[in-house]
Amino acid sequence: MLEISNLSIRYGSKEGGVRALEGVNLRIEDGSIFGIVGESGSGKSTLAMALMRLLPKSGSVEGGQVLLDGQDILSMPDREFRKLRGSKLSLVFQGAMNTLNPLMRIDIQVAEPLVLHGMSEKDAALQKAHETLELVGLDASTWRKYPHELSGGMKQRTVIASAIITQPKVLIADEPSTALDVITQVQIMNLLRSLQRRLYMTVIFISHDFPLVSEMSDRIAIMYGGKLCETGRNDQIMHRPMHPYTVGLINSVASIGNKRKLSAIPGDPVDMRNPPSGCRFRPRCSGATEKCASYGYAVTNVESEHDVYCTLYGN
């Protein structure tokens, strides 16, 4: 169980900086795929980096906590956390192109987490790396190759192999397929899903691609401007969307056999250096009222497991 409560992240100083994440609360059950959707600047990647404690130097945790099986992973010492990073908690990077060290054989790079965490000796780790590469669909002819000899999809499989080799409890996949062509994208998604079932991992799947997230995830959180809009089970979000932003997202997606007219959400993405008061989505929202300008992001539980952050509901 991963519990994120009231998490806020800031880049830069109090005066000049940007609050990239504000008051985020999420409960992520073991063995499920949890999807997080948002456009760029929504804070979804900041959330991923915060969970891995890999924020850039200018980023800092302003408040809140993250409990992994009851253990607060944000307040533990670096040295302690490093034992979890890459073993119990793994990250699949976005953008497959430059994620691998060009000077190192891929099987060695896949084996690295095992050696770093003292889980096996070098030879055994390499053996295990070959098994894992096989598992993600790369055959023996590729194991000893260098990154520049692989296609984009093969590189992404390598990155995934290195993330799962330690059989992590939680796998964070941040835009794992964005840089790839459509066919490869589908293959990578199927691979992630089958690995999740096989290894009983918790997968946090982060993407700007709403249809992809809805296809993959058991539960979905929608983010906008560093804050949550709505969280719920997949069917709740897809069939009974509550937040105007969620509704807008669903309406802007074309799906086969759907005759409804496509409509884009009007307005520009939020300027995080100078965010609007109250609800961040207010300037683009057709249902905005005066109440929204002073909205304090109170959560409304509209049905079991379905939460929404909007003045249209509750008080």
Partner: peptide, 22 residues
């Protein structure tokens, strides 16, 4: 600044290991 440095860090590598190996 390269991605493979962050990637190595995400595997749990220490600063000195990242320097030496990557």
């Amino acid at each position: 600044d390269e991605d493979y440095i962050s990637f190595a860090r995400s595997k749990g590598a220490t600063d000195s290991y990242i320097m030496r190996r990557h």
